[in-house]
Design a protein around this nucleic acid. Structure first.
Length: 693
DNA sequence: ACCTTGTGAATTTTT
DNA sequence: TTCACAAGGT
């Protein structure tokens, strides 16, 4: 399999690159589209090399660069590695590049910021005048409104004190203060929203004043990539607003356009379907201006509209925003076997019909099963056995949500317990980022702490870890000689237990009952907290996960922490492996992913566990299968259809050889269309010998 | 009949 | 953060 390529096909493949090169040579902006596994990144790299080889000298003489934009930092690093060191090519994410291009236009950005502040203020005013939440406020006369505003601005501390409190407490605190305006307190939720809106308006107005008075810190706008939200009143903008300001600046000032065009005559954008529409708008504006002033300027988009799986992405709207692009389409597939390609072609159903570049591409298999949730484990086990999976030939299993992936990876209990803590109840969205991010620098405080402990245990418990690697790892914590190392390893070998709590007790005993200074330093550096006893760690967890806890809730909090500590250490190990799965040195026989997180990756053996519902979106895949042949969908229904299709396409096209799907819902209505795509669906049911299960 | 309150359950990813 | 729902109040 995958060994024979006919010269004719190779030549045809080369021709698509020749097409791209000719557009580059004539400075005609283009879009390169191809399905999954076609070698998009390869084409991007080849294009960059072509530009460097052909125009490198000229670019160098004029101090010009090639701009290359990727979707993520990970992709940027990967591309830099593939390209090798190059002075001419600037690879970065779009945010990094845009900020670099606009950050020096300080007064101009402040002007744009003022406009934004005023817009936001009038938006808030509009809401106060229309939205049902603000009716009680709206019905006050002007005098009462001002009185209310003044009272609330004077009582900011009090307001936030009862922000999450029950209705009765809010009444007790604000009832007497607001006795003149009793109606405003009737509905506490609406009261909260009203007051928040008033605070925000006053913050923005304050900011405008500070700018006007040229106060310190108010003469420039800052892009803060660490926050996901704007803090306009502090002159800080976040990701989306950065692109918005960038676009406005470029639209407004011809000089800015000209400087960018002169500095970067070539721009290549990877995964264009996921970048925001504002980015395409920026590029389109630059392109138009370049032709107006007769400058050579080229933009190359690389991507695939059907692989657009994020809502804010450009998706299939590229041509509407950036018109007159030349199009290059590549239909060869270098990844998957014929059986998989047949299926993914039927899912796409557009003009890109893929064909393997290999003459010997048969030998894989695709099957569609339906069954019930209780049989998911049996399904996974069946294929672990059937395909002889091990670390070298792993099984990769996809779930729609992190929560289910966590459950089947064997650490659902950690997810469950953490989601019940006060911290993650308030910041529900934060839990997946802080617990499950593949980028360990993004772990939250407590997940980071847990990670350190598990990382530490994993290193020294695993007898397979070569001593030299342990040595390297320990050097990271504390430098020592080989003799010292042996002593430390011997002591660390004493750590044991079945639950996390056991391990913490074991570690703290070792720490407190031992004179070995090196060992104590290693433990100190690992845990990074003041005092190392079971009680202090317990309190650390309690205070971090239940900040500002009230007395009546103390019992619940203590119980939650105890539950967390009582979880078996193997759960924590499973979690540790889950977030390390992209680390090539970690080889598991089975890996779990969400559909989304597999984008850009490929695996030999793929199992897709498919539920019909996805969050608030009910009836997602059933809807897709039901309307598979239907061309007449419009608006919301079309969006829903494409969402399901794109997700299914991305998931299925990851498979190199073997693909299995287990659909966990009724297929009666959709059987014919499933057969059309995947062949006859098979029922999966396990006959369990154990009567009790 | 309508409104208010409290509660529980749900969410992919990146900058 | 947003929805859905049940319980209780007006």
């Amino acid at each position: 399999m995958f060994s024979k390529i006919s010269p004719a096909k190779l030549q045809e493949e080369e021709e698509s690159q020749i097409d791209i090169n000719s557009y580059i040579a004539s400075s005609d902006s283009f879009v390169f589209q191809s399905g999954a596994g076609a070698g998009k990144t390869y084409a991007l790299v080849e294009s960059l090399k072509y530009i460097v080889n052909k125009y490198g000298n000229t670019l160098f003489r004029h101090n010009q660069k090639i701009m290359c934009i990727t979707y993520t930092n990970v992709a940027a690093n990967e591309l830099r590695e593939r390209l090798g060191a190059s002075q001419l090519v600037k690879v970065s994410t779009i945010h990094e590049r845009i900020w670099d291009l606009i950050k020096d236009y300080k007064p101009q950005l402040v002007e744009i910021h003022k406009v934004k502040l005023n817009e936001e203020i009038s938006l808030l005013e509009q809401k106060l005048n229309r939205d049902d939440n603000f009716r009680a406020y709206r019905e006050l006369n002007k005098e009462k409104k001002e009185q209310f505003q003044k009272i609330m601005l004077d009582n900011k501390d009090n307001f936030y004190k009862v922000y999450f409190a029950k209705a009765r407490e809010v009444d007790e605190l604000f009832g007497p203060i607001l006795s003149d305006i009793p109606n405003i307190l009737k509905n506490k939720d609406k009261f909260r929203r009203t007051v928040s809106a008033i605070y925000k308006m006053s913050d923005y107005e304050g900011c405008l004043n500070m700018i006007e008075n040229k106060e310190k810190g108010f003469h420039q706008v800052i892009y803060n990539s660490k926050y996901n939200r704007d803090r306009l009143q502090k002159m800080q903008i976040s990701h989306d607003t950065l692109l918005e300001y960038g676009l406005t600046l470029i639209q407004k000032y011809d000089l800015v356009k000209q400087i960018i065009i002169d500095q970067y005559p070539y721009v290549l954008i990877d995964e264009y379907q996921d970048t925001s529409k504002n980015v395409i708008e920026i590029m389109s504006t630059l392109n138009k201006y370049a032709s107006e002033i007769n400058r050579k300027f080229l933009i190359g988009y690389f991507g695939d509209a059907v692989q657009s799986i994020y809502e804010n992405g450009t998706g299939k709207n590229l041509g509407e925003i950036h018109s007159n692009l030349y199009s290059v389409i590549k239909t060869f597939n270098r990844r998957s076997c014929k059986e998989v390609i047949n299926v993914t072609n039927k899912i796409r159903m557009d003009s890109i019909i893929q064909e393997s570049i290999y003459d010997d591409s048969t030998g894989g298999s695709v099957k569609f099963y339906y069954g019930v949730r209780n049989n998911v484990n049996a399904f996974i086990n069946k294929y672990l056995e059937e395909w002889n999976c091990d670390g070298e030939n792993p099984l990769d299993c996809f779930f729609l949500t992190h929560r289910t992936a966590a459950t089947y990876s064997g650490f659902g209990d950690i997810y469950e317990q953490l989601s019940k803590t006060e911290k993650y109840k308030v910041l529900y969205n934060q839990l997946t980022t802080e617990l499950l991010s593949n980028d360990i620098t993004k772990l939250g405080e407590i997940p980071r702490f847990l990670y350190n402990i598990i990382h530490f245990i994993e290193k020294f418990k695993s007898r397979n870890t070569p001593i030299i690697q342990i040595y390297d790892d320990l050097q990271f914590y504390e430098e020592m000689t080989f003799v010292e190392l042996q002593e430390v390893i011997k002591l660390l070998g004493q750590i044991n237990g079945t639950t996390l709590g056991d391990y913490i007790i074991s570690i703290s005993e070792l720490y407190n009952e031992n004179e070995n200074i090196k060992l104590r330093k290693i433990i100190d550096n690992t845990l990074g907290i003041e005092s190392i006893t079971y009680e202090s760690i317990y309190n650390y967890l309690l205070n971090s996960l239940f900040p500002d806890i009230k007395e009546d809730k103390y019992k619940n909090a203590e119980e939650a922490i105890s539950n967390l500590l009582d979880i078996d250490i193997s759960s924590y190990e499973n979690w540790y492996q889950y977030i390390q799965k992209d680390n090539p040195s970690v080889k598991e026989k089975i890996n779990y992913h969400t559909y989304h997180s597999t984008k850009g990756l490929e695996f030999n053996n793929v199992l897709i566990i498919m539920e019909n519902n996805f969050g608030t979106q009910k009836d997602l895949f059933n809807f897709y299968f039901k309307h598979y042949d239907n061309e007449g969908l419009e608006n919301d229904e079309l969006i829903k259809f494409e969402k399901a299709r794109n997700l299914l396409y991305v998931a299925c096209s990851r498979a190199i050889k073997n693909l299995r799907i287990l659909y966990l819902d009724d297929i009666a209505e959709i059987k014919d269309n499933i057969t059309e795509i995947f062949g006859e669906p098979l029922e999966f049911s396990e006959i369990t010998k154990n009567v009790h299960s």
